[in-house]
């Protein structure tokens, strides 16, 4: 994985979902992650905001199809 943003997203994911075996690719989705419910989705995005020092708008996190889109959104805000 050469995408260093995706790599940091993966680390956040491991910390939030307490699973060090999580491996993310651009096509990984919420379904691939155990415990990714609506509350944990918010926890995850808030953790990303803290990690990257940015803030998502209300609409931005509504429809992100996969982790590739998450990484792209983060990158666009850095």
């Amino acid at each position: 994985m050469s995408d260093d943003v995706l790599e940091r997203v993966q680390q956040v994911c491991r910390d939030v979902f307490e699973d060090d075996d999580i491996v993310l690719t651009r096509s990984s989705t919420a379904k691939d992650i155990e415990g990714f419910d609506s509350l944990m989705k918010i926890t995850f995005f808030v953790a990303l905001e803290e990690e990257f020092g940015l803030r998502f708008g209300s609409a931005e996190i509504a429809d992100l199809p996969d982790m590739g889109a998450v990484a792209d959104l983060v990158r666009a805000k850095l």
Partner: peptide
């Protein structure tokens, strides 16, 4: 601890 760290510590 940051707010995120407190949250994760508490959940664990």
């Amino acid at each position: 601890a940051s707010p995120g760290e407190l949250d994760r510590a508490g959940r664990w």
